[in-house]
């Protein structure tokens, strides 16, 4: 995989691909007075559809805060966030919850699978949340699990799966409702090197699709080669953005 640094700017620009996420001047403060901590300081960021964007940086640099804001899980203190053409400022309460459910998929560091559900049932959860019938949802989830190479494990409980397999179930769950934005928080952090590579390859092969943006938060430099764009963060700001060409399906 050929890695190529193209530029180092604070704000990525998009010309040929639609901008799935646009952040302008985003700041986020936690606490008040003497205990106030500024986690993000005027971040500008564009995330393009059809690409995988990696958010990288040391612990505490604001990566997770930024994706929480982008995913509509956290309100920024200031600034404007537009996701899939929709300003999050204007989405509140139930509408914001519905927006997340319909358009955003999540992959977590610790997989966050429900231990009492089988792989297929876990993968079907977003469809069930959106109101699809259980049998129909599970059937669709089975096809997605086959796509991530877990066709033989659909009836296994999370406790019967390895970490890598559980993360693949989590990826299937994140993709089953065909979201336009996939947010992955340290998807390889809990995995060994081989499993981490497998998961990243899977994300590239299955998740990166035209019209879908994938944001991956990571500090694992072994997987940097999988991102079309690498956003380096430091101390609540974007330090630089690298672009690179990554072969499809690699």
């Amino acid at each position: 995989m050929n890695r190529m640094t193209v530029q180092s700017i604070a704000s990525a620009t998009a010309t040929s691909l639609a901008r799935a996420v646009v952040c302008r001047g985003v700041t986020k403060d936690f606490g008040e007075g003497d205990t106030r901590v500024q986690a993000l300081r005027g971040v500008n960021l564009d995330v393009l559809g059809g690409e995988m964007t990696l958010l990288v940086g040391e612990s505490g640099c604001g990566k997770t805060t930024l994706i929480s804001i982008v995913a509509g899980l956290l309100d920024p203190t200031a600034g404007e966030v537009t996701v899939l053409g929709q300003s999050l400022r204007h989405l509140r309460g139930r509408r914001l919850v519905q927006f997340r459910g319909q358009h955003i998929g999540f992959v977590f560091q610790q997989y966050n699978l429900l231990p009492a559900l089988t792989a297929a049932e876990n993968a079907a959860v977003p469809l069930i949340i959106s109101g699809r019938k259980r049998a129909e949802a599970v059937a669709k989830a089975r096809t997605v699990l086959e796509a991530v190479g877990l066709g033989s494990k659909v009836n296994s409980l999370p406790s019967q799966l390895s970490g890598g397999q559980q993360q693949r179930v989590a990826i299937a769950r994140a993709l089953v409702h065909e979201p336009k934005l996939l947010v992955c928080d340290e998807p390889t952090a809990a995995l060994d090197a081989h499993s981490g590579q497998t998961v990243m390859q899977l994300l590239r092969r299955v998740a990166v699709q035209p019209g879908r943006a994938v944001i991956v938060v990571t500090h694992d430099n072994r997987v940097f080669g999988y991102g079309d764009r690498i956003v380096h963060m430091s101390d609540g700001t974007i330090e630089r953005v690298e672009e690179q060409t990554v072969a499809r399906g690699s």
Binding site: A71, L73, R94, V97, Q98, R100, G101, Q102, F106, F108, Q110, N112, L114, V125, P126, I129, S130
Partner: peptide, 12 residues
């Protein structure tokens, strides 16, 4: 953790 996950995934 699971309730938080469900909330993130769109459960009100």
């Amino acid at each position: 953790k699971h309730f938080g996950t469900l909330k993130a995934m769109g459960v009100g």
